Amino acid sequence: MDARIDGVRHTPRYLMTDPAEVKALVRAHPWATFVSATSRGLVASHYPVLLEEDDDSIVILSHFGRPDDELHELGRHEILVIVQGPHDYVSASWYDPGDIVSTWNHVTAHLYGTPQLLSDEENYAVLSRLTDHFEDGRPGGRHLSDDEAGTRRIAKGTVGLRMVVDRFDARAKLSQNKAPHVRDHITTQLEPTNPDLAAAMRDAGGRVAEPPH
């Protein structure tokens, strides 16, 4: 089942409603912020995430270092996972004369779900996949299998998780409210210092998203 889309009442032109777009954002920006409302208050941690690619839903895999799993009361309640794509300040000096309100363009996804804790064996498999994902193709890349006995001991200090995303609120705020020539100028200004954001603006192409029905 696809994740439900949140936030449909606000700034509909900026909404990302296609789960495929959210998956692409996670692939490109796998460093995520995990936020939990625990019995002791809010807790936040930061860990890399991967997608479970063979699932039609949005499913993320990750791990927590101990004792973060206990601080988050992991697996006992819904959590929020924030994925931040390209972003930057947009100066009003790039607008037409008389338009004086600057802003911040960004691509962001808020993912909600209750994580399932993994067994030690499942956790080690996720850690191996995570390492392989970032090490493959690097000269002299290292892999957990290079020292399985040693890395299995280290892995005991972590707790793996799998989270099916029940709902998401994702936005690509990319100056869709501006005239095409203004968007083009903003993109040109961003290109030298933030090519990823400039590319996202070009991909958006000024498309105005309609609220889902």
Rank of each mutant, 00 (worst) to 15 (best):
T131E: 09
I154M: 15
A155S: 13
S175N: 12
V107W: 01
T114K: 15
A149L: 10
L127I: 12
R162P: 04
N123K: 14
N123Q: 11
Q176S: 08
M163E: 05
R138I: 00
R171F: 05
E135F: 01
S128G: 14
E148N: 11
G157N: 12
D169W: 11
N123T: 15
F168G: 07
Y112K: 07
S145H: 08
S102V: 03
V165S: 09
E148I: 13
E121H: 07
V107N: 05
Q176M: 07
V165N: 08
V164Q: 11
V126I: 14
R153K: 14
N105P: 06
H106Y: 15
D166R: 15
D146E: 12
G137H: 01
L161Q: 08
G113W: 04
H143R: 15
H143T: 10
F134Q: 13
V165Y: 05
W104H: 10
R129Y: 05
G157T: 01
E122M: 00
A109S: 13
V164L: 12
G140C: 12
G160Q: 00
D132R: 15
V126Y: 13
T151R: 10
N123P: 02
K173V: 05
L117F: 06
D147G: 12
P139K: 07
Y112N: 06
L111C: 05
F134G: 11
R167L: 04
E121F: 06
R167N: 10
S102R: 02
L174M: 09
D120C: 01
L130F: 15
E148D: 15
L174Y: 09
L127D: 10
V107K: 02
G157F: 00
H110V: 03
